[in-house]
Design a protein around this nucleic acid. Sequence first.
RNA 1: GCGCCGUUGGUCCAGUGGUAGGACAUUAGCUUCCCAAGCUAAUAGCCCGGGUUCAAUUCCCGGACGGCGCACCA
Length: 610
Amino acid sequence: MSEQGESDPEAGAPTPAATDRDRSEAITELAKRRGFFFGASGAYGGVAGFYTYGPQGASLKDNLESAWRDRFTVRQGNYEIEAPTVMPEAVFEASGHLDGFDDMLVECPECGTSHRADHLIEDATDIEDAEALPIPEVEELLREHDVRCPTCDAPLSDEPVEEFNLMFETSIGPGSGQAGYLRPETAQGIFVEFPRLKEYARNQLPFGVTQIGPAYRNEISPRKGLIRVREFTQAELEQFIDPETDEPPLEEVEDVEVTLYSAEAQADDDGEAYTTTVGEAVEDGTIGSPWVGYYLGVAQGWYERVGVDPDRFRYRQHLPGELAHYAADCWDAESEVDGDWIEITGFAYRGDYDLSKHADHSGESFTVFKQYDEPRTVERPTVDPDMATLGPEFGGAAGDVAEALETLAERDPDAFDAEEVTVEVDGEEHAVATDTANFSVEEVTENGEHVTPHVVEPSFGIDRIVYTLIDHAYETDTVDDEERTYLALDPELAPTHAAVFPLVSNDDRLLEVADGVVSDLRDAGLSVTYDDSGSIGRRYRRQDEVGTPFCVTVDRDGVEGDGEPTVTLRDRDTTAQVRLPASALAETLASLRAGETAFDAVSEAYERVD
RNA sequence: GCGCCGUUGGUCCAGUGGUAGGACAUUAGCUUCCCAAGCUAAUAGCCCGGGUUCAAUUCCCGGACGGCGCACCA
């Protein structure tokens, strides 16, 4: 992915890289100092890849999850579940996570290439299943056979062999109980429960199941703060569809503008991301799956709603080599942070891969029975072999012969026109009298069929989106010749909805009114903070830094009039203020938060303060 | 996992073979009627383990954590 986000080495000072670095450091510092996020378990030296969200961050993340739930669960009419984070080994045998990740790797000291140690042993010896050997033995074999790096021929005999499986293993129950793994994606918790979930959906396709929760990957090298971590939160939707008949309501999103970075554009040296509409991109085949196109459109609106900067956002198509073997088409949503493009969501058409795998491994049914409008009568060639004849004639092979006859009847019914038919079992040909096979063509009534649904999966990385929101909201400006840092978070997402200040703390009237305002607003369900410490400007700055969109200040003018108390309401981004009755606050703030009103409208309705 | 660099109050930094200093922040009191910088005081720190030394925050080794590059990221 070297084509992504690299800075131009020939750019003049200050280089974009340096600027991005400074900005990234400033954001990390703010996140630590103000309680958005920080490395976990610091008292014990910390552990890479694990982060604690502080008070501001936990609230921001919670608000983001609520916004996701609102859009992808509630508004889509989907079902949300909560599955365990630990699941037994069999689940991951079926999903392919176990095999795919249990590699013994040895790294070449000269050229740095990693090789499968078990494969090298298999090549150098006549051992067939080296993967089953314990690591010390593999290391010993590397020494014995003086194995060398296939790439550069450097000796690997003294190199350590590492086992890399990205799943965290644990044991369930006491002693050497059952092996379990922390889920590497929330999706498996949905797939595994499909047989029951389809009952809740009353066996009707399409339906969607969502889950928000933690997933775990034992990353080799966690990096870049929240971007590469070992425990993270996913919000996933598994949309189950009938591949034959279900089509997305594309008309809802066909006019949504999206920035696409197609596989074709990526392959082309001059290729660039370009803007189009969902409808056009599906129409011209750039987006291969209408269902994927539909969710790209839905998600676009959601990203904008929660505060992702559309100018630093794009959909990137997976290159042919990147595609999982079961995926027909896959797009990533990417945001630009610190000069890099990072994947924040994957949109994949997974076909029936997952459900089929679980059906094979579990023996359960992962299908939906689709009833026809009218029962269908079909002619079905069948055999009913006379086992009393076949048994004595073929002995132990009789069962296989009967089975072969059934297969032949389905495949080539005309063969039974002859006096006898010949079937092959284990390479041996057996002739059977047609009479013995009891061939007939029956009329069968079929009321429907079992369909293995296909899956469309939008999979969101919540932590990366949280980081994106902070990065895209981070602004500096100048107010009264003082530099100011603020987070222009959307009011819906901001950790604190409003802060309430008495302008000065030596006037009991102001304190009383401020107390009352705080109670009112909290009763109205708003998250409110109170602060009477330090100069008013300092208190505004504190709130600016954590992205509180509105500050309420109680001043003497507001309590000395004849009528009810008035207060001033300050807008974070512009620092503009209006004066309004304290009694109107709760409704006004709720409306501002919901996005039903803009501050400008409030500003026009009331008296501006300069 | 490899290489280079780093780790000192909450944050950002300075500094020293004899256990440390600033700025900002925080707290208390005073002051204070609208945008971080008034006054006084207080709280608070040398990443962890081992070694060398009379003495280690400082030097050496190892580890953890962080940044960058490489590898990895189903």
